[in-house]
Design a protein around this nucleic acid. Structure first.
Lengths: 235, 235
DNA sequence: GAGCGGAATGACGCTGACGTCACTGAAACG
DNA sequence: CGTTTCAGTGACGTCAGCGTCATTCCGCTC
């Protein structure tokens, strides 16, 4: 209701050749329900949300929902699908011999892109992290395979980096988990704490520095330059 | 049923002075239900689990469940409470001037303890990570405050470490999130992939190394010692 | 072995959420 | 203006899961 489009322009131009019009509306209606669902899922969480909550938010009748979606699970699935593909697209493969962009800069760009996406899509970020797991076994599997794809990609990159001597030793897959874990947590906190979109740059630096040097042990450039390590040095 | 204790020994010794017996049994019955719940939650996930699933696993009648617990949410809550306090206990505050155990060794001990706990309590670890979020708003708050406690503790340690020059620069709270995120992911994978308990040591080393040096950029002890930073150096 | 206390049982009624479908209303058409 | 068509509606029947409670069962006491 209220959202009903008033008969406009449309009526004049080529009245006959327009089974399109219905289509346009259908898409908009669908989108409207999708967005309402996103809002409600973010507010109440997936399991606390009922179809009635969604249709109330969207301002349509219960039956209308079922004209566009199979059930709650299927709207949810579509939201997650769209969002996870946006995440995938935010990641660029790293080109090793680009003279204009160092590997470091490309790495930072990837981090920055993901953080920005999370900051611009707070609702979806929240949903992804707090509700996506445990919806049902089938969905869990799908989600896991997306996640695994990301980890796999990163693992390969790290392995390659090790071959080239720009990534330190360590089981690449484990390093990938650690990295993704750190990133996930950062994203989660970013939306939970409601940081502003322009904290993206600072956070990117923090994460990048973390990945570069860690934080324990001696600072990068220290007075005593030739100490080979410095850990467990009896103290 | 079937699990019913056959009247044994008991009958003979001090038949009179035993209102205890009932008590012992009550505790055991409660424990039995708790353990069955844990198993079922781990297998099906919290939301897919019904009271009927639990009582079937425990081998008791539906009504019996309600003799010992308020509802599903309350068993779940108790399981999580117990487990999270075991996690807390696994962490020791770091003593700075202990001549017998370096800070590094204490740090590693903490990591090792948590990883071992996860490896020994796979069901609970899985439950904690995949089902605990999104149960209901009240529970989420409780969980968050436990989580925040851990982060807070770590944040303070890092701040102190920075003061002493044994932790590098960076917003301590952000470093804490990154660290906890990496750890969480590691624990999650550890149980998902079903690693054996004796991978704890290797994983501890991986995580500790990660926290110490990160993995990007040049290896720890480099020729050029006095470069003030080292980032985006055009390449 | 009669009587008692309390743990255990499971059939039962209730509820909240689901998905359907007979109906409504308005746009499009002739 | 009558007719057709189809998106939209919401009352309704269904059902899964819940929590209760009258009854059964068991072990102990006298």
């Amino acid at each position: 209701m209220a959202t009903r489009r008033p008969r406009t322009k449309q009526a004049k131009e080529t009245a006959v050749v327009e089974p399109r019009r219905a289509h346009v509306d259908k898409h908009a209606r669908r989108q409207q329900i999708l967005e309402a669902s996103r809002t409600v899922f973010a507010r109440r969480g997936y399991h606390q949300t009922t179809i009635d909550h969604i249709v109330a938010e969207a301002g349509v009748a219960r039956g209308t929902f079922y004209l566009y979606f199979e059930d709650k699970r299927s709207v949810f699935s579509e939201l997650i699908d769209r969002f996870s593909s946006r995440i995938s697209m935010a990641i660029s493969s790293i080109v090793l011999d680009d003279p204009r962009r160092s590997v470091a800069e490309q790495t930072r760009a990837n981090i920055r892109a993901i953080i920005s996406l999370a900051l611009h899509e707070r609702e979806m970020t929240k949903i992804l992290f707090t509700d996506a797991a445990g919806v049902d076994p089938g969905f869990d599997r799908k989600l896991y395979s997306f996640y695994d794809e990301v980890v796999q990609l990163l693992t390969e990159s790290l392995r390659e980096g090790q071959r080239l001597g720009i990534v330190r030793d360590g089981e690449p897959r484990v390093l990938a988990y650690l990295t993704v874990g750190a990133l996930k947590e950062l994203l989660n906190q970013v939306v939970t704490l409601g940081l502003s979109v322009d904290s993206a740059e600072a956070l990117t630096t923090q994460l990048y520095e973390f990945l570069s040097h860690g934080y324990l042990g001696a600072p990068p450039a220290l007075p005593s330059p030739r100490s080979p390590r410095r850990r467990r040095s009896s103290k």
